[in-house]
Nucleic acid binder design. Structure first.
Length: 968
RNA sequence: GCCGAAGUGGCGGAACUGGCAGACGCGCCGGACUCAAAAUCCGGUCGCCGAGAGGCGGUGAGGGUUCGAGUCCCUCCUUCGGCACCA
């Protein structure tokens, strides 16, 4: 049952009756305290973090000598449902940490913005007829109120939404920087595109491979052709290529947004591969740096592994296989197996397929190779029809059996000279490597399968391990000595795989037949979407249909007003449909008269919009300097908050907390943009996020009836350990919070009943930040009781009087206090707030035990309140004020442990006999091994146990234990 | 199939670089207060044997290293996450 349903009635909070003490800390008291402090924090700008310069520079002198920290959350998409209890887990975590750091004498930047462009707002708008901007900003207002009510110490002056024109103006500006750049492989960084044109003109550089389709050198190209060549170098470029088209969604998608079974991550529609002209970002140019720099940032191994796999760097070789038309260039990671290549395969979309195809089947071509077709051309056409343009789902439905067709053509193995049949097969992908392979069935499982289907020869070139074939092994992919691999001038036989690879590559390079090569799994980032609710491109097309950047002075290109914002979607299976961007319907807007330097002309605007990842690629930079109208961020401010330091060699946000679901989407894109901006000299940091922590997911109870359908969790009742929905028994499980499990719970009810402080404490107490765990709402009373008890240490709940004393703290309690301080700090620093809370609880238990009637010494009550402050800031502020302090403790000094009090004069040391604890003795803390042993032998129990037995060994570790190893 | 993470009481979880397993909390049991209940407070709570002192067992399973293993190594099981014709 949701607590929203039984929020306390005004004047009678949970459990309160007439004889409840008037100053008891309960939900109503918490509400009064919390709203009052939230108002005061806002009034005083308590959480304003001064910048070293600029409009947010007020008060910087005060913090100039402090060190500084930037603590960041992944900003939310403001959905109509508001926050549920899972969202704030990370937000509370960063807030606790930020508040702790502030009390540790740091200038802390902590704020929250909104990632507000995107499909749900647009779909909701289509349903309701309201403009997406209206619903988006209404939702943002709800989120801001919820965050405020949770007591977040955010610098609200810095809050931005990606949909603000003042924000997306700079998203567009960054797009233009990327558009106006190219990647210079010689210096391994992005450079302004003008440099490229200049170098091409000067003849000091030639166009990169594949960028000059005109077949003539640069000097002989027309101006228009030169523009085309330059455009082909840009980091943001248009190209006609195979893209993921989701007709049901009405838009194209990035590879990262398509699931493994070929459907859209959003909406779960089938996705088809279609050639379309779209914008791309050349993220592949950064593949190596994105990979390399992972080693220098403090991220979970899991996420780094996922990024490494996504980038998928493979080293191997390009090898040219001569044919009757041009040579076929293949990529292989196993150049050492070239002697075992028995056929060649091209992807169905490979551009050489048509030129290569023979006019007729060669004499004696087996039936299986022709697919029963008259000629290679018809066979290829039929095969393409059966593969290209079909969804991944359909392809996978056929299972793993290999399909393909012979082209009628042969290529020559450049090493052995053998003629190899050339096939077309869809198990070779156009998007990876060169789109062509040499097939080595002896050492590759997929090639083996294909060879079996088409009855192709199989040659082993690596000796399989002993018993491999007897055990049913087919292709052998392991290490072993090379066999059957020798010609004049190249003898691999007996070499292991690594040696054989190196030898082969050297031979290929000497003989001009190939060279060492690196390939990435990563593809360029498809960057345009056919949606209304996104950033317009700052691009127009001229009379040649070529893109022209709008000048900075024309930014932002605002989204045009319209009530016709629904995307044009199609039947989900209609693969032949073509995307139609909603902006394309606004003819008045699309066609625009501009003077871009060569007189007024009519241009056509780009009608696609950017993907919703665009804003999140750089928002953390805008928080730094949100009102700057001259730059996206002032370099001095960026260097102050994010510049490299000894701890953060590449710079970046000190702590970034968010869900692991962004491991290869947002986090890869943001790193890429950041590196481009770094290359172009706008940033001092080359990574955006130094330390990443993935907060766990809260799992809520969900209830299913006997037919397996989920029922509304809020309406389920519990009786005698069983669960009932409308009288019918249902079963309980724990799962991800969401509409589909009908188990969404919002924080509001808990805050109303217990207060935000209790809620914060509860979320932090149930486990470490990174860990997923079930949300057991009943347990919230634990943290609630803790706050009530701390409250009573400071004041009398009957009179409301503060009742601490000025007595000295007794020695023993003082030691507990200082040990607690030490442990609580440790917990805060390592983000294990659950242990900090446990230690605070222990200290409080010790205090209430020592002073059951109140009058605890101020010298223990005050540090107790301070230690609580990051977790439960409102009650801490209130108690701090009642203890007689005028200033907020948000900037006060966190208690420090006296090292002298952390070590005891005497310690308890367990004594073991054969590893079992038999006694515990009190000994001086500095006892050495000999005196420990002596003391242990002096213990009556131990003496009795070892009496008459042979002591073979004594292990005495000072401060730890004594262990007697005895015979028998 | 490949890669990665994790398995500790009825539950969430503690346990520093190998050194008293179960801190802290929930729940449960008992008690105080109350006409009663709720709220609050106090005590107990890993299992088995024992009146007790105490003993024995115990961190997914099995093996190993060690004086000593929740922690390190090997094999297996289970759960969760990621990738999936990437040559």
């Amino acid at each position: 049952m949701s607590p929203t349903d039984d929020a306390p009635a005004p004047g009678r909070p949970n459990g309160a009756t007439d004889d409840t003490p008037p100053f008891r800390y309960d939900g109503r008291m918490a509400d009064a305290i919390e709203t009052a402090w939230q108002d005061r924090w806002e009034r005083n700008g308590t959480f304003h973090a001064p910048n070293p310069t600029g409009d947010l520079g007020d008060g910087f002198e005060r913090v100039a000598i402090r060190s500084h920290s930037y603590v960041l959350d992944m900003f939310p998409y403001p959905s109509g449902a508001g926050l549920h209890v899972g969202h704030p887990l990370g937000y509370i975590g960063t807030d606790v940490y930020a508040r702790y750091l502030r009390m540790r004498d740091k200038n802390v930047l902590h704020t929250m913005g909104f990632d507000a462009f995107g499909l749900p707002a647009e779909q909701y708008a289509v349903q309701t007829g309201q403009h997406p901007a209206t619903t988006t900003y209404a939702n943002i207002a709800v989120y801001r109120a919820q965050l405020r009510r949770l007591g977040m110490g955010h610098d609200t002056r810095r809050s931005v939404a990606t949909t603000d024109p003042e924000f997306y103006r700079w998203t567009q500006w960054i797009f233009l920087q990327i558009f106006n750049s190219w990647y210079d492989p010689f210096v391994d960084k992005a450079r302004p595109i003008e440099d490229l044109a200049a170098e091409l003109d000067a003849g000091t550089r030639s166009p990169a491979e594949g960028t000059n389709p005109f077949g003539r050198p640069w000097a002989e190209l027309t101006d228009l052709e030169r523009r085309g060549v330059v455009d082909n170098h840009r980091l943001a470029y248009r190209s006609e290529s195979l893209v993921n088209w989701a007709p049901g969604l009405g838009t194209v998608l990035a590879n990262e947004e398509v699931t493994a079974d070929g459907r859209s991550e959003r909406g779960n529609f089938p996705v088809f591969r279609r050639p379309l002209a779209q914008w791309n970002m050349r993220i592949t140019a950064y593949g190596d740096r994105l990979l390399r720099d992972l080693d220098q940032i403090d991220w979970p191994d899991k996420v780094r592994t996922m990024q490494r796999n996504w980038i998928g760097r493979s080293t191997g070789a390009h090898i040219a296989f001569p044919s009757d038309s041009a040579p076929i260039e293949v990529f292989t990671t196993r150049p050492d197996t070239v002697f075992g290549a028995t056929y060649v395969v091209l992807a169905p979309e490979h551009p050489m397929v048509d030129a290569l195809a023979a006019t007729d089947w060669p004499e004696g071509t087996p039936e299986a190779w022709t697919g029963g077709n008259e000629s290679p051309a018809t066979a290829i056409a039929a095969y393409r029809a059966s593969t290209v343009g079909r969804s991944e789902l359909e392809r996978q439905a056929e299972g793993k059996s290999k399909t393909g067709v012979f082209t009628g053509a042969y290529a020559r193995n450049p090493v052995t000279g053998t003629a190899l049949p050339v096939f077309v097969a869809d198990y070779v992908l156009m998007g990876y490597g060169t789109g062509a392979i040499m097939a080595v069935p002896g050492q590759d499982e997929r090639d083996w399968e294909f060879a079996e289907v088409f009855d192709l020869p199989i040659v082993r070139t690596v000796q399989p391990a002993e018993g491999f074939e007897q055990a049913g092994g087919k292709a052998f992919t392991g290490n072993g000595p090379a066999i059957n691999s020798s010609i004049d001038g190249l003898d691999l036989n007996g070499l292991d795989v690594d040696e054989a690879k190196a030898r082969t590559v050297a031979w290929l390079e000497e003989n001009g037949a190939g060279r060492g090569a690196v390939t990435y799994r990563l593809r360029d980032w498809l960057f345009s979407r056919q949606r209304y609710w996104g950033e317009p491109f700052p691009i127009v097309f001229d009379e040649h249909g070529l893109p022209v950047a709008l000048p900075e002075s024309m930014l932002p290109v605002e989204l045009p007003e319209t009530d016709d914002f629904s995307p044009k979607s199609f039947p989900p299976e209609d693969a032949e449909s073509t995307p139609e961007p909603p902006l394309g319907r606004l003819m008045d807007w699309v066609s625009v008269e501009l003077d871009l330097g060569d007189g007024p002309k009519t241009y056509r605007r780009e009608t696609n919009t950017m993907p919703n990842w665009a804003g999140s690629c750089w928002y953390e930079l805008r928080y730094l300097d949100p009102n700057n109208t001259e730059r996206f961020v002032d370099p001095e401010i960026e260097r102050y908050w994010m510049g490299p330091s000894a701890d953060r060699p590449l710079g970046g946000v000190e702590l970034y907390v968010g869900g692991v679901e962004h491991a290869v989407l947002h986090l890869l894109y943001a790193r890429f943009w950041h590196k481009v901006l770094y290359d172009l000299g706008y940033l001092s940091s080359s990574e955006p996020f130094h330390r990443l922590v993935n907060q766990g997911m809260l799992q809520l109870p969900a209830y299913a009836n006997k037919d397996g359908f989920y029922v509304e969790a809020a309406e389920v009742e519990e009786r005698d350990g069983h669960f009932y929905y409308q009288g019918e028994q249902v079963t309980q499980e724990f799962g991800k919070i969401g509409k589909s499990l009908k188990n969404v719970v919002t924080p509001d009810g808990f805050i109303a009943e217990f207060g935000a402080d209790t809620f914060r404490l509860f979320e932090m107490f149930s486990g470490p930040l990174e860990q997923s765990r079930p949300w057991d709402a009943k347990a919230i009373v634990g943290p609630y009781r803790l706050l009530q008890r701390i409250w009573r240490v400071v004041l009398d709940e009957h009179s409301g009087e503060t009742h601490v004393s000025d007595d000295p703290v007794p020695d023993e309690l003082n030691r507990v206090l200082h040990r607690t301080i030490d442990a609580v700090r440790e917990g805060y620093e390592s983000l294990r707030f659950n242990t900090s809370i446990a230690r605070i609880t222990e200290l409080n238990n010790a205090v209430t035990q020592a002073y059951p009637a109140g009058r605890a010494p101020r010298a223990v009550a005050e540090p107790l309140v301070k230690m609580l402050a990051p977790l439960a800031p409102h009650i801490a502020e209130e108690l701090w004020a009642r203890l007689g302090h005028d200033e907020s403790l948000a900037w006060d000094e966190f208690p420090a442990a006296d090292p002298a009090l952390l070590v005891d004069d005497t310690v308890q040391v367990p004594v073991q006999v054969n590893g079992k604890v038999r006694a515990v003795m009190d000994v001086p803390a500095d006892s050495d091994a000999a005196s420990l042993e002596a003391a242990a032998r002096g213990d009556a129990r131990i003496a009795a146990l070892i009496d008459g037995r042979e002591v073979r060994r004594v292990v005495a570790v000072p401060g730890r234990l004594v262990n007697f190893v005895v015979a028998g």
